[in-house]
Nucleic acid binder design. Structure first.
Lengths: 339, 339
DNA sequence: TTGAAAGCGCTAACAT
DNA sequence: ATGTTAGCGCTTTCAA
C-alpha cells in the first residue's frame, strides 16, 4: 500500500542519506545557497522529488525564530463584515504572490479573544502582523509595536506609537454622504455609529457634524446613536430613530452591517425608501445594486486596503529600519436610489 | 525601557532557573501533570506570571508531532461566499471553546492554491483538517484521508474513501425550491449551476429535474447553465437565460453568489421580479429580506454545518478509531417575495 | 564545496 | 517528587 506513505513526513536527513550527502548540503540546496556543486545540487533535487520531500515549517521556524519564515498573522475584528473579507482577500493575494502563508484570527470584537489570538500569533513566531486594534489605546498591540515585531495597522490607528498604518478618509467620506443628504433636502439626518471607541467611528461622526453645520442644519443629539458595529445594533438603533417623536427622515449608517440591520427594520415596518426614510451607508457592497432600493453608499477601497497593508508589512519585514508610513486611501460616493 | 522586553520570548528554562527547579518540572506544571508538589507548583506558577512566560507553540509542535497540539487546519473554497463565512464561524466557535487555534486557508476554487495550502497545513503539523475538496476525486485530499490524519469533509464528499462528512440535503432542498416555483405556475424554470464537478451542484440539479418531472414540466437543456459558483457567472449566465428566444420565466440559482449575480443582471435590465422573471436561491443570507424584492431561498444551516464538523473533528482527534460518520443536515425553504 | 555538530524550546523516558 | 537527557527537523557556524 504505497499510499500509506504519501504523507508520512520525510525528513531532510532521509534525503541526505539517499543522496549520499550531509544534511547541511540538502539544506543549502533547499535554500538556494550558491555554494553547492551543480552536480550535487541536481542529485539532491532529484532525491527531493523522488521522496516528495517537503520541508517541515515548524522545525524551520523553531530554528530561525528571528529570521523570516514566510508566515504572517492577521487579526480581523469581524469576519462577518464583508468589508473585512475584502481586506482579507487583498492581504491574501499579496501574501500568496510573495509566498507568505497566513494565520487569520477573527476576534469578533472581543478583547479577550483578541488577547488570546495575539498570544498565539506571537507564540507561532509569525514574521509580522496585520491588525485592526480594538481601540487607539490597545495596550496589547502597542506593546507589540514597541517590541519591534513588524506590524501594520489597518482601519484604526494607535496613539503614542509610530506604526505603519492604512486607513481611509473617514471624515471626508462621511462628510460627502451627509452633505449629499442635506443637499437632497433632508432635514433630520441621523447617524448610527459603530463602536464609539474606534477612531473611525469618531472621524465619521465629525464628518457628519461638519456637513450638518455647513448646510445650516442644527445638530440634534437624539439623532446620533452609538452601537457595536453589528447587524443587530443596526436593527435596534434604527428602530429607536424611527420611534422618535420627531423621527429621522434620513439615516447615515456607520458601516456595512449597520446598514443591513437598518434596512431590515425599515422593510419590516413597511416603510418606503427614500420616501418615508432615506438611507446612505458607509461601506459599499458589490451587491448594493440588488438591494431594495439600490443603495447609495460611501465606498471604501477594501481590497486595496488589504493589498497595501500586506505590501507595507512585507517591506518592513525586509527592511525593519525604513521610516513608518501612514497611508490614507480615498473613498467614493456611489449614488444610487436610497436617498 | 522596560517595555522592550514585554514580548521578547521567555523560555521555559528561564522560568526553571528563576524558580530553582528543572525544566521538566516547569513542563509538568504547564501541562498539569499530577506529579508535582503543590508548593513547587505554586512557586513555578508565580514565576510564570512574573516573567509573563508563554509556551512556544512552535517548539511544542515540533516536539510532539504526533500528539495533539491544539491546532486545526481549515480549507475554504471561497471566503467571498457568505455561506462559507458562516461555516467558518461555526468552526471557530467550537475551536475556541475547545482551545484549538485555526489556520484558515482560502483557496478560491484554485486547485494550485489548494495544493499549496494543503502542503503548508501538513507541514505545520496540524492535528486535523476541515476541508471542502474541489471535487469528489480530489486525490490530494484522498491521500490525506488515507494517511490517517484526522479530517472531516464539509459540503462535498470524496469517492472511494471512508471519511467524516457534513453535508445538507442538496437534492431535497433543490426539489422544494423548484417544486414551489412550479406550483406557482412558472413554466420555463431555469437552473444556474455552480461548478458541475461538485457533488452538491449535481445533487441540486437532480432535485431540479425531479421537481420538473413531478410537476409535468418538460426538461429543456437550454435552461440549464453551468458556471463556476461565482458572482460573475451569475451575472453572465442569467443574461444568457434572458436572451433566449424563449426566455426563462423563473431562475433557480445554485448558490449565494450566483443569486447576487443574477439579481444584478435582472436589475440592470430593469426587469421586475417576480412579474418579468422570478428567482429563487440556494443559500439564504440574513439580509435576504433587504433585497429587492425580499428573496425566497433555500436556507442551509451554515453555522451548524461548521459547528458539527468541528465537533466531529475534535472527536476524531480524541478517538481516531471511532467509526466514520456522515451527517446530513436539513434545508428550509424561506418563502418571501421573489417568486 | 562539503561535513560535523550545536542549538532553537519543548516533552517524555528514564533515573534518582 | 524531581532531575537528566535525548531528540523532534532544521540551519548555521566552524572546520576541513
Amino acid at each position: 500500500m504505497a499510499y500509506e506513505n504519501d504523507y508520512k513526513a520525510v525528513s531532510l536527513y532521509e534525503v541526505a542519506d539517499k543522496a549520499g550527502v550531509s544534511s547541511a548540503t540538502v539544506s543549502r540546496v533547499i535554500n538556494n545557497s550558491p555554494n553547492v556543486n551543480p552536480e550535487t545540487r541536481l542529485r539532491v533535487q532529484q532525491v527531493i522529488k523522488e521522496l516528495r520531500y517537503t520541508p517541515n515549517r515548524v522545525a524551520k521556524r523553531l530554528r530561525n525564530r528571528n529570521a523570516s519564515n514566510n508566515l504572517l498573522g492577521v487579526l480581523i475584528p469581524d469576519i462577518q463584515n464583508p468589508f473585512y473579507v475584502e481586506v482579507l482577500r487583498g492581504i491574501e493575494d499579496v501574501a500568496y504572490e510573495n509566498k507568505y502563508a497566513l494565520i487569520v484570527c477573527n476576534f469578533s470584537q472581543d478583547e479577550k479573544k483578541e488577547k488570546l489570538y495575539l498570544d498565539i500569533l506571537l507564540s507561532e513566531s509569525v514574521d509580522g502582523l496585520i491588525a485592526a486594534p480594538t481601540h487607539e489605546n490597545d495596550q496589547k498591540v502597542i506593546n507589540i509595536v514597541k517590541s519591534g515585531l513588524p506590524i501594520v495597522c489597518v482601519d484604526r490607528g494607535l496613539t503614542g506609537v509610530d506604526v505603519d498604518l492604512v486607513v481611509v478618509e473617514n471624515r471626508n467620506g462621511a462628510y460627502s454622504a451627509v452633505d449629499f443628504l442635506a443637499k437632497q433636502g433632508y432635514k433630520r439626518i441621523a447617524y448610527i455609529s459603530g463602536l464609539p471607541q474606534l477612531p473611525s467611528s469618531r472621524q465619521r461622526e465629525s464628518g457628519y457634524k461638519d456637513a450638518l453645520a455647513d448646510n445650516g442644519l442644527v445638530f440634534d443629539g437624539s439623532l446620533v446613536k452609538y452601537g457595536d458595529s453589528r447587524h443587530e445594533s443596526g436593527v435596534k438603533l434604527s428602530e429607536e430613530l424611527l420611534n422618535l417623536e420627531n423621527p429621522a427622515d434620513a439615516i447615515f449608517t456607520g458601516n456595512n452591517l449597520i446598514t443591513l440591520g437598518a434596512l431590515e427594520t425599515i422593510h419590516k415596518r413597511g416603510l418606503r425608501i427614500p420616501d418615508d426614510v432615506a438611507i446612505i451607508g458607509f461601506d459599499d457592497m458589490y451587491w448594493s445594486i440588488s438591494l431594495n432600493p439600490p443603495l447609495t453608499a460611501v465606498r471604501q477601497p477594501a481590497y486595496e486596503i488589504g493589498k497595501r497593508s500586506a505590501e507595507l508589512l512585507i517591506q518592513r519585514i525586509t527592511d525593519p529600519a525604513r521610516p513608518t508610513v501612514s497611508m490614507t486611501l480615498k473613498t467614493e460616493l456611489m449614488i444610487r436610489n436610497s436617498c
